[in-house]
Amino acid sequence: MKKLVSGFAVMNLLAVGWAVTTALTVWLVMMYAPVDAELGYSQKIFYVHIGSAAAMMIAVLSAFICSILYLVRRNLRADNYAVASAQTAAVVGAIVLITGMMWAKAAWGTFFPLTEVKLLIFLLLWVIFVAYIILRNAIEDSGIKRAGSAVFAVFGFLTMPFVLFINRWAEMPSQLHPTVITAHDSGMEPRMLVTLLCSIVSWLLAGAVLIIVRAKIAEIEQAFETLETK
């Protein structure tokens, strides 16, 4: 029981941070960041899109690391965190795709430009994590379920570098996705940059909180199951 309660202090702290940064982000987006000269108000989607994409990448990375940990150590906690990360990646990924399509329609005139490698990668990652969740629900044997989904998550994650290579060789036309932040230049108006950074922090905290809450729920459910069997 002590173990179950131990993570709640960190979770509460993250949740407070999430609430504060989200409120701040909403204010910055509405009141502080200037309206884009070309795209108008539709440019504001960008703050949600980039922030949720950052949260998805963290969730995907967490699912990959926790799956490896489970396969190596057979640690139930790692499996709980892998599932929680995959579920978070699927939910946040849906937000990335929906806001991305809204942005694409406003900026480029099409919902889904197929030659966009970044779009392809995110769609593929999202499909992989939705498949992961379906797999978890479809297998009854808990041993096969845990090992199988961990193996699938590792396979899914390692597919990504290959998709990146395709961009170089497939003679794809120049990519529409802008490189917003580089090592030397943000390429953005300073007020927009501040808003974007605040949004990213808020989404990262949201991702972390969702992962911890979901993993804790799974741990509590397992603790109850153990008590019931005793």
């Binding site: 593929l124 498949a131 797999l135 479809a138 297998i139 096969i144 597919t159 290959f162």
Partner: peptide, 19 residues
Amino acid sequence: KCRGKGFLLTLLVLPVLIS
């Protein structure tokens, strides 16, 4: 040993083999 093996296999293999 799973039920619905064909459907699940398609769902798992296709995204991994996309490259």
